[in-house]
């Protein structure tokens, strides 16, 4: 159920762009995040809400400002659950294949 929300949140280019912007600089205000985005403030707020519901963005108050932070923990979980599992076999096979080619090159 949590995973559904995370995948849904990630399945949108604007939301992925907002995550990238937070990765480049964390702890940003809404005003900061909407600058340079071709979208209304309301639109950006809606996207941030989806990211918050998925746990990918967490907000903190700092005086009068509301700051948005990237929370990497759910992405890590998705990575461990859905990415590691499928890449481990083929990736290690390809790494082994590459090594064997390199050894052949050297022996020639």
């Amino acid at each position: 159920m949590d995973d559904d929300r995370i995948f849904k949140a990630l399945a949108d280019p604007t939301r992925r762009m907002l995550l990238d912007r937070l990765f480049a600089q964390d702890g940003r205000t809404l005003g900061d995040l909407e600058a340079g985005v071709e979208m209304t403030r309301f639109g950006v707020m809606k996207h941030l809400r989806v990211l918050e519901d998925a746990g990918l963005v967490v907000t903190r108050r700092n005086g009068r400002e509301k700051l948005h932070f990237l929370n990497p923990v759910p992405i890590r979980r998705i990575h461990d659950r859905w990415i590691d599992k499928y890449t481990e076999g083929p990736a290690s096979f390809l790494a082994g294949l590459q090594r064997s080619f390199e050894e052949e090159d050297r022996s020639e």
Partner: peptide, 13 residues
């Protein structure tokens, strides 16, 4: 380079 001076992590347990 990412600004890492304040880092936040949240997890539901």
């Amino acid at each position: 380079m990412s600004d890492l001076s304040t880092q936040l992590y949240q997890v539901l347990l």
